[in-house]
C-alpha cells in the first residue's frame, strides 16, 4: 500500500483527482519510517553478524582489525576447535560433549513435559471436577514464583525421590537409583517448570475446540482416553508444534537448572559454553569463543527461522497468561 503505485499520475477524464491517491516512496515521512526501521534492524542484527565474522577470523586478524570488519581470510579453524578441542577444566573435547548432553536432556524433557501437559490441559478443559480449577489457578500463580525460592528444596525432593525408588529397586535386586544429579532429575525439573505455561496453552486450545465434539464422543461411548486419542489429538497438531517450539528453545537455552541439577559430566551446552568462554586460564581465543557461542545458539535459531510465524504464535500464547 505504501509505495507500490508511487508517482503514477492520475489518468482519467476530466479534472480532479481520480484513482488511488498518489504516494511518493521518497516522501520525508517514508524516509523517516524506513530509515528508523533499518537502523533498528541493524542494531538487532549486528551481534549475530559480529558473532559470525569473528568466528571466521584467525586470532592475528582479530587483534589487528575491528570487530565489524568482514574476515580477510576465512578460516573454519575456530569452529573445529570450539566443537572438538576447546577445554573446560580438565576436559578438552570441545562443545560436542555439551551438545550431545543437551540433546539427551532435550528429547526426553520435551516428550515428557508435552505429554503430561497435554493430558493435563485436556482434563482441565473437558473433565473439570470440583477443585480442578483451583489447582490450575495455583499452578499459574506458581509460574511467577522466582525459581530461586524452590531450587534448594527441589534438590531434597529429587534426593528423596531417588531414595524412595531405590527402596523398591534394591528390594528387587536392581541396585540403588539416583534422581538428583542425573538426566532424569533434570527431565523432572523441566517438566515441572514447563507445566504452567504448557498446560495453559493446551487447556485453552482444547477449550476452544467445539464442546459438542466432546459431547458427541461421550454419546458415542468414548471415554477419557478414547476422546483424547481418537477425537482431540488428531485435531491438535498446530498446538503441539507450538508447544514443541516453546519447549525446544526453552530447554535448550536453560542454564540455571542445568548448573544445579546435573553434574559436570552431563552439563548441558549452555553451561559448558559459559565455562569455556569465562574460564580464566589460558589466552582468550575470541574467535573460538564466538564459534562456540554461535554453535550453542544454532539450535534455537534454526527452530526460530524455520518455524517463523508459529514461533510468534507460541510466544504470544505463552505470554498471555492467566
Amino acid at each position: 500500500m505504501a509505495d507500490a503505485t508511487a508517482n503514477t499520475p492520475a489518468v482519467g477524464i476530466g479534472p480532479g483527482p481520480r484513482g488511488a491517491k498518489p504516494r511518493n516512496a521518497f516522501a520525508p515521512r517514508n524516509i523517516m519510517l524506513y530509515g528508523t526501521l533499518i537502523i533498528v534492524a541493524i542494531y538487532y542484527a549486528l551481534p549475530l553478524y559480529v558473532m559470525i565474522v569473528t568466528s571466521l577470523k584467525g586470532m592475528p586478524e582479530i587483534r589487528m582489525g575491528n570487530i565489524f570488519a568482514p574476515p580477510l581470510e576465512v578460516t573454519f579453524e575456530p569452529w573445529v576447535k570450539a566443537w572438538s578441542t576447546a577445554c573446560t577444566g580438565i576436559n578438552c573435547d570441545g562443545l560436542s560433549r555439551g551438545f550431545w548432553n543437551s540433546v539427551w536432556i532435550l528429547v526426553p524433557s520435551v516428550v515428557v513435559s508435552i505429554t503430561i501437559a497435554s493430558v493435563t490441559g485436556y482434563a482441565l478443559a473437558n473433565w473439570k471436577f470440583k477443585g480442578s480449577e483451583f489447582f490450575f489457578a495455583v499452578l499459574l500463580i506458581g509460574a511467577f514464583i522466582p525459581y530461586q525460592v524452590m531450587l534448594y528444596p527441589i534438590v531434597l525432593v529429587l534426593k528423596n525421590l531417588g531414595d524412595g525408588i531405590s527402596f523398591f529397586t534394591v528390594a528387587l535386586g536392581l541396585g540403588k537409583v539416583q534422581v538428583y544429579g542425573t538426566l532424569w532429575g533434570l527431565v523432572i525439573v523441566h517438566t515441572i517448570f514447563g507445566m504452567p505455561i504448557l498446560t495453559l496453552l493446551f487447556r485453552n486450545y482444547f477449550a476452544s475446540l467445539p464442546e459438542e465434539l466432546f459431547k458427541a464422543g461421550r454419546v458415542d461411548g468414548a471415554g477419557f482416553w478414547g476422546i483424547f486419542f481418537r477425537i482431540m489429538l488428531p485435531m491438535s497438531l498446530p498446538i503441539f508444534v507450538v508447544a514443541m517450539i516453546l519447549q525446544v528453545t526453552g530447554i535448550w537455552n536453560d542454564f540455571l537448572f542445568g548448573v544445579i541439577y546435573t553434574k559436570p559430566e552431563i552439563y548441558p551446552m549452555t553451561v559448558q559454553l559459559n565455562n569455556i568462554v569465562n574460564s580464566v586460564q589460558g589466552i582468550k581465543e575470541y574467535n573460538v569463543n564466538m564459534a562456540a557461542t554461535l554453535l550453542t545458539g544454532l539450535v534455537p535459531l534454526i527452530v526460530y527461522f524455520v518455524s517463523g510465524k508459529l514461533f510468534v504464535r507460541g510466544i504470544a500464547a505463552g505470554a498471555v497468561k492467566g
Binding site: Y44, W252, T270, T293, V303, F305, I315
Partner: peptide, 15 residues
C-alpha cells in the same frame, strides 16, 4: 527484531 528472543541469555551475555 525478534530473533534474539530465541537465544539463550548465556549466548546474549557472551556476545
Amino acid at each position: 527484531i525478534l530473533y534474539p528472543f530465541a537465544l539463550s541469555f548465556i549466548v546474549t551475555g557472551l556476545v
